[in-house]
């Protein structure tokens, strides 16, 4: 990634950390509303790859603030929500790994138990799938000059895949944490409760499955493969 992209992510982490207590104002003042505005119009000139990275950070640090709405309009909200979800799922995985590597029971860390290892492997696969979906959606939106109607297939597939990961990811994260993960003081709920909310926001599973399924039906069996390969790589 470029130096400008790295700097953007560092800025997002710092500003969102402040916004976690201060509210949306610092995010607005830092100019995140101009992220996708072209440079000739006085904006940052970022692409959806930038938005994806910033929103993944927002999904961890400020899941309750309207950062996605500040960055992009209504038509982009399903795509933006995928990025928020990818970020929050990644954080749930990080917290889970830290917990099982430190919490000791039966004289050893929980992470030494095969049952726990296998659960976390299942969770990691779901998280990687959603991260890949978010990244591939960004690639398509950027190739199509941010025209969301040209990325309708990818938006539907990515949001549906992200929705379907929520149940597995939140369930395993809480299961391996035990009771501490169910407390107000511990950070896990700061990502798992937003994940539960985002699954139903901007199109639940049934909405996107029906929409994508009807679109694919018009392509026909062989047409699905031809359309998918024509859209990318």
């Amino acid at each position: 990634m470029s130096a400008a992209h790295d700097m953007l992510c560092d800025t997002a982490r710092a500003v969102f950390a402040e916004a976690a207590t201060a509210g949306i104002a610092p995010v607005e003042e830092a100019g995140f509303g101009l992220l996708l505005v072209p440079e000739e119009d006085g904006g940052f000139g970022g692409d959806w790859g930038d938005a994806n990275a910033v929103l993944q950070i927002a999904g961890v640090v400020v899941p309750d603030l309207p950062v996605a709405e500040l960055i992009a309009g209504e038509a982009y909200q399903p795509a933006a929500t995928v990025s928020l979800m990818a970020g929050a799922m990644g954080q749930a995985l990080v917290l889970s790994i830290e917990h099982v590597n430190t919490r000791q029971q039966f004289g050893r860390p929980l992470g030494k138990f095969q049952a726990v290892q296998q659960s976390l492997a299942v969770m990691a696969c779901e998280v990687r799938a959603v991260e890949a979906a978010a990244a591939a959606l960004a690639t398509r939106l950027d190739a199509m000059s941010l025209d969301p109607s040209a990325a309708d297939f990818e938006i539907a597939a990515a949001k549906l895949r992200a929705n379907r990961a929520v149940g597995v990811v939140t369930a395993i994260a809480h299961q391996v944490h035990g009771a501490i993960g169910f407390t107000e003081e511990y950070d896990l709920h700061r990502v798992t409760v937003p994940l539960m909310r985002w699954r139903g926001a901007h199109g639940n599973d049934a909405y996107w499955a029906a929409r994508l399924g009807r679109q694919v039906a018009t392509l026909g069996g062989r047409g699905l493969w031809e359309a998918m390969t024509a859209r990318g790589a």
Binding site: A133, R164, A206, V216
Partner: peptide, 27 residues
């Protein structure tokens, strides 16, 4: 074969299954 058997205007339950399988395959 599922997509071809379902036709251009599939039963809603089959459309939903096609949608979910497509999302997984794309990912």
């Amino acid at each position: 074969a599922l997509i071809d058997a379902a036709g251009a205007e599939p039963d809603p339950a089959i459309a939903a299954l096609i949608g979910e399988l497509t999302a997984e395959m794309w990912t």
